[in-house]
Each structure stands twice: as C-alpha cells, then as structure tokens.
Design a protein around this nucleic acid. Structure first.
Lengths: 197, 197
DNA sequence: CAATAATAAATGAACGTTCACTTATGGTCA
DNA sequence: TGACCATAAGTGAACGTTCATTTATTATTG
C-alpha cells in the first residue's frame, strides 16, 4: 500500500489559505490550487471530499490552533485583569506569528460559510471563556453585563487593531500603522477601565 | 433618444447586494443577477463597465448614505459624550433600517476589493470624524491616544454588537440575540468610561 | 430620424469534479 | 532475502456547466 506524502497535503493547505487571503473565496479555484501546490487536481479530492470540505477543515484546524494558543498559560484562578491580559497577549501573538492563517479565519468568519464552519466545532474554548467571564462577575471584578456586551467591549477593539496592523495602515487617509506592545497595552488598559465595576 | 428605465437599475442594485449578502462574492454571477432582476445580461453592461465596477459603485453609494446618516444631527460643537452618542444611535439605526446594504458593505470591507473600494471615495466623513476626535482631546474630554486606538475602542464594539444582531444569535452556543436600545446604551456607557481621561 | 436602451444568442475561458489509468509501497510467501 | 500482489496515492485529460463579456439586432423615444 502506497503511503501519503505529507508534503503534498501541507503544500495544499498553505497555498489554499494564501489564495483565499490574497484573492478572497472567488480566488480559490481547485485547478489553480493544484497548480500552485504542484499536484494534480484529482489529488485534492483524495484529501478532501470537495471544495467546501477543504475550506471547512482548514478553518477547524486553524480555530483549534488559535484556541490553544490564546489560552496558553491562562490561569483560570487568576484575577480578571491578569486573565484578560494573558488572552490579549496570546491572541495578538498568534495573529502576528500566523498572519495568513488568522487572516484566512477572518475571511471565513465574514463569509456565508461561517455558520457551517462554526457548527462543526466543539468549543471547549468558548466554554472556558464564558466560565472566565461568569467567575469574574461573581467575584465582583467585572461589570455585570450580558456576555455579548462583554465580548464586544473586551475583544472587538483587539481585532480592529490587528486588522489595522494587517492592512499596514490605520484609518483611511492616515499614514502607516504597526501594532506594537505599547499600543496594545494602551488599548488594553482602556478596555480594562471600561469593564471595571 | 430612448431613456433608461430607473426601475431596471434599482432592481439590479438591490438584487446584486442581496446576492452578495446571501452567498458572498462567489454567489454574485452576472447571469444569475440578470435573471433575478429580469433583464438581459447585456443590460448590466449599459449601467456598469464590468463586474468590479458594479461592486465598487454599490459600495461607494452605500458608503455615502451611511456617512450622511451617521452624521445626521451631529453637532461638532457639542460635547464629546453627546457627539459619540449621536454617532452610535445613527449608525445603529442605519444598520437596522438597511440590513442588506450594511451587510453588503461589511462583505466588501473584508474582501480584497476593499482597498480599491475605499480609494475611490473622497471621505469628508473621515475628516469630520478625525476633527471630532482631535477637538475632544484638545478640550480634555477624551483620553489622549492614537486615532487608531480611539477608533478601535469607540466603534469596534458597536460593529460587533450589530454583527451579533444580524446573525440573530450571540456567542456560539448561546441563545438568540437582538440588539435593543438598552443593550446599546449599556455598551456605549462602557465605551465612554474607557475613553474618559 | 438619430441615438440610446434593451435584448437573445453566442463567445472562449474557467469552473468543480470525475474517469481511466499509472506509480509506489507495505505485507505475504517463497 | 527477493519476487509478487493488493491497495491506496497520484496523475493528465476530459466531463458538462457556468462564468464574464460581446455581438448583432430590435425597440423605444427625444
């Protein structure tokens, strides 16, 4: 029995995400992907059922990786402030170190595939995050608000900063922008201020 | 000389945005669009140069409308708090009253077309927003931070709430979610707290 | 009548996917 | 050890369909 060549699969994964990031989902054609990864179009269908299955699996794997890295060194018994700080640092680091993968995730998030992509994921991650919020509220370290309000205030600013960074510039008409530790901390402090009871 | 039928153009505009919202940019095919708007495919090319031109013009018009509505009743001499409140209310109202149009804008924003789409826009809107921020900082009503940090904290939470609302549910695994005035105000208060010096 | 709107039909290219086929390899038996 | 076989990996060319766009022609109106 012939064995699979793992380099083929990883080449396909890499090129597929790069194509989506560069040209959107329109830009991901199976034949162009095959050419970019130097395999036959038919080979893709050995690894994935079809185009959607490929995208969905790429998303699921990226999500798993992002989740793990975001909760690295996260101590659920620590204070809210410390917990959120760790999550911010980790998430920012993940985005910086895996720009294509994280950009790809964002593309899926804002596509009609997002529902199906999220559906196939058992989210330990989400459960941990929610427990963190509930605990912090119970201990009086966090203003008592619906979880959606919390999420919007706690993380949306971070995502926006990362988006500015990825784009290389800030507001339209502004000069170049690069997300450094100082900017990240400044923003985190504002968010912590907002969420303090 | 024969005159254009404005109903054809508006049908095309409406159906085009609806198709992008429903199925993403993959889903916007010129032939399907023609069928949906009950015109010949060739008719589309009377109104727009090509597919990209169509999308770019739809975006430019939507952006203009959004800008106008966001700054409706906005008084640049009022306090920062009141100014931001007006902007939030207006923006939220625009999104609620024009769900397809605003969703379409978001799709463009997260697509590779975004740069070209923004490039063709003379943004009076952005200039007003920036002047508002600068003035508020100068008057000591707003914490002194880079404009990107301000933007991330001041508006990203609003966009996230609208996204939850459009999606009809909050965090994955949570129940239904609907953005009401109370939730909007709660979040705005948190943001104002964050941005107060 | 001149000019433009609007169309039906057609264009070649690109799409996702499959088919018929070849190649490589771990296990089996000598 | 080495020949052989079953099995899955991998391929190039082709499938029918749909894509964006154009062409040739007709319809409408200032």
């Amino acid at each position: 029995m012939r064995t699979r060549d793992p380099r083929k699969e990883s080449a396909l994964r890499e090129k597929a995400m790069a194509m989506v990031v560069k040209d959107g989902f329109d830009g991901l054609s199976m034949q162009k992907l095959a050419k970019a990864a130097k395999v036959s179009p038919a080979t893709i269908y050995i690894y994935w059922k079809d185009r959607d299955d490929l995208i969905l699996q790429l998303y699921a794997d990226a999500f798993r990786k992002m989740s793990e890295q975001t909760l690295q060194d996260f101590d659920s018994t620590a204070s809210f402030k410390e917990g959120l700080r760790v999550q911010w640092k980790n998430r920012a680091r993940y985005c910086m170190e895996n720009p294509i993968e994280s950009h790809f995730m964002e593309q899926v998030k804002f596509s009609p595939l997002h529902d199906r992509a999220q559906a196939g994921i058992d989210s330990e991650f989400m459960r941990t995050m929610k427990a963190f919020v509930k605990g912090a509220i119970a201990r009086g370290e966090l203003v008592k608000v619906p979880v959606e309000v919390y999420w919007s205030v706690a993380f949306a600013p971070l995502y926006q900063l990362v988006k500015f960074h990825k784009h290389g510039r800030g507001m339209p008409g502004s000069g170049p922008f690069s997300l450094d530790d100082k900017t990240l901390n400044t923003t985190l402090e504002l968010v912590l201020k907002a969420l303090k009871p």
